Simulated scan of single mutants.
Amino acid sequence: MAIETFGFCPRVNPEGAFTQRTRSIQFGDGYTQRAGDGINGESQSWPLTFVGDDDSIQPIIAFLRRHKGYMPFRWVNPLAELGLYCCPDGFNVTAMGKNSRGDQVFQLTATFVTAYHP
């Protein structure tokens, strides 16, 4: 399967978490030596929210189901950086009621995490 691009627009103000993986060793004299751990030492996590009617939420659900939580996809994060991500913890959908036209409105939440491709 070719790597797809996630092109749906989340709600504004997502807050990303950046984690650097390090190793450290503490010596008896108080000195601590630190080093990076592995070639992919930084990971990102982006909790995202999407709101819309059935016609706008169903394609997002189909995309996330197709990638099954482990298959990577391309996504441009809010910092305009293109990267590989996956959605390992699944997603949640909440029915929010109906809008003024009588259409059911949904909220979908998902967290995208950096994925690495060998």
Rank of each mutant, 00 (worst) to 15 (best):
F18P: 01
T19D: 13
T22G: 05
R23Q: 14
R23Y: 03
S24W: 02
I25L: 04
F27T: 08
F27L: 14
D29F: 07
T32W: 04
Q33W: 07
Q33P: 02
Q33Y: 07
Q33T: 06
G36A: 12
D37W: 11
G38R: 07
G38L: 06
G38D: 14
I39N: 11
I39K: 08
E42Q: 14
E42M: 14
S45G: 13
S45R: 14
P47F: 03
L48N: 03
F50Q: 08
F50V: 10
G52T: 10
G52L: 06
G52E: 05
D53C: 09
D55A: 13
S56T: 15
I60N: 03
I61Q: 14
A62Q: 09
L64N: 02
R65Q: 15
R65E: 14
R66I: 02
H67I: 03
K68L: 13
G69K: 10
G69C: 07
M71C: 05
M71T: 07
R74F: 15
W75Q: 01
V76E: 15
P78M: 07
L82M: 13
C87I: 01
P88E: 08
F91L: 06
F91N: 08
N92T: 15
N92G: 08
N92L: 12
V93A: 05
V93Y: 03
T94Q: 14
A95L: 13
R101Q: 15
R101A: 14
D103H: 12
D103Y: 08
Q104K: 06
Q104V: 08
V105H: 02
Q107D: 04
Q107W: 00
Q107M: 14
L108G: 00
T109V: 03
T109C: 02
A110W: 01
F112W: 00
V113W: 00
T114S: 15
